[in-house]
Computed example of a mutant assay.
Amino acid sequence: MTVRQSDHPIDPQFLTRWSPRAFDPAEMTEGQVLSLIEAARWAPSASNHQPARFAWGLRGDAGFAAIHDGLMGFNRVWADKAAALIVLASKTFVDKEDGPAANSWHAFDAGASWMSLALQAQAMGLVAHAMGGFEAETLAPALGLPEGYQIHVVVAVGRQGDVADLPEKLQAREMPSLRRPVAEVAARGRFPA
């Protein structure tokens, strides 16, 4: 397995969190999902607009099936084993006295919500895998997404399973990924070349 090491001291939660695709058949409760969403709703938000919105389902229910039907390609193959699927969207506008105005930070805020959800999942002994491989035009009407909202990711959540249960072509990818060195992504007083 890949051993992750930081360039500088950080809390271990950032090195141990990763996005597996192999899920154990163990079920989750509604309360567990709501704890994940509770953590996500406390994420930082520009001007406290709180644009993040969630639709979710537990494996075996109609919500899970509707979300799963909106997945693309190989995501359909492994995500059906997750205990829950959560769709994260955000409100792209803010309500002002003179009418709606664009919220330039909605996607940034949604990203903060995703990270809060992922870290809460890890704290609960669960794993979370965010996917961009979905059909928004399928999910939006199936989940009643209001106009002026944008879907960002579908998150599969559950207990980590056995890599041998994945299709062979996915098994080799089932390990924590590394990150670029700090010196490659940050520089004092300027962006790195």
Rank of each mutant, 00 (worst) to 15 (best):
S104Y: 13
V154R: 00
R159K: 13
W114I: 01
A65N: 13
R4L: 07
P100S: 11
R17T: 09
A140C: 05
N75R: 12
L126G: 01
E38N: 14
Q120Y: 01
Y149V: 12
D109A: 10
L178V: 14
G133H: 01
A83Y: 09
R173L: 15
S113H: 01
Q160I: 10
M72I: 14
Q150S: 14
R179N: 01
Q5I: 10
L139E: 03
F134V: 04
P176H: 10
W56P: 06
V182C: 09
E174D: 10
A187S: 15
G133N: 05
G31H: 13
F74S: 13
A22L: 08
R179Q: 08
L145E: 11
P100F: 04
D24N: 12
E168W: 07
S116H: 13
G144A: 05
R17K: 04
G73T: 00
P12W: 06
M131H: 03
A156R: 09
Q5V: 14
A52V: 08
A172L: 05
E135H: 13
H129D: 06
T2N: 12
G111T: 08
W78V: 09
V87L: 02
A101H: 10
S113L: 00
A187C: 14
D95L: 15
M28N: 02
P167K: 13
S45P: 12
L143A: 07
R76V: 08
H68D: 06
D162W: 03
P25F: 11
G132I: 02
R4S: 00
L166A: 05
M1D: 11
P192L: 02
F23H: 06
V163Y: 03
E135R: 15
V153M: 09
P44I: 13
V94Y: 08
I151C: 02
V154G: 00
R180D: 08
S116Q: 08
